[in-house]
Design a protein around this nucleic acid. Structure first.
Lengths: 90, 90
DNA sequence: CGCTTGCATCGACAGCCGTCGATACAGCGT
DNA sequence: ACGCTGTATCGACGGCTGTCGATGCAAGCG
């Protein structure tokens, strides 16, 4: 999961999707915002999807992506408790 | 920063240091817990240090590392607000 | 039914990064 | 001063991964 977020393009993709109108964006809205080719964007979106950070759905001709906040919440909680909670009583 | 956390060894190092007695650990306590060589551990600790995730101090013969919680808190907050805060009013 | 557009997949290549052994450096004990 | 232990740095190598062009597939349109 951290690995999925370790790429600047993927991080920006996530931010763009989340801040897009309706909380979702189609690929055609994203491929113009980067200096990389369309296959590369598609590849990064696939990584985000397989990591569980975003969901996707084909809607007619276009494919839409949206952020799954649960995954982000999990990571956020993890960073707030770096020590193992099971040993907290010691 | 996410890049620094994207390596399993670094992630475990961070967890081990945080959960160690006194919130800090010397390198000699860590090098035995992994299947990699001492230079590799030293390399990963350097990455964590340069990223601002941990602090280090030489104390006599040994070098101690501890976690800087501010960095983790920043990331945690970032994940809770995936959209850019500056555009929140829109 | 063929053409066009949107997106995904494939195969190949290059650069990055984690890894190691060897070595250098620092501090302590003798 | 010398050696010993703990840690960092160096140089090299291999595998992973981000990138591309080419191509394939899906859906709408004439």
């Amino acid at each position: 999961m951290f690995k999925a977020l370790s790429d600047p393009i993927r991080l920006r993709l996530l931010s763009l999707i989340a801040s897009h109108e309706g909380g979702e964006a189609c690929v055609c809205d994203l491929i113009g915002l980067f200096d990389v080719s369309q296959p590369t964007i598609s590849h990064h979106l696939k990584v985000l999807r397989e990591t569980g950070l975003v969901g996707s759905e084909r809607r007619g001709t276009w494919v839409y992506y949206w952020v799954l906040p649960e995954a982000l919440a999990k990571l956020s909680a993890l960073l707030q408790t770096p020590a193992v909670p099971a040993e907290a009583s010691a």
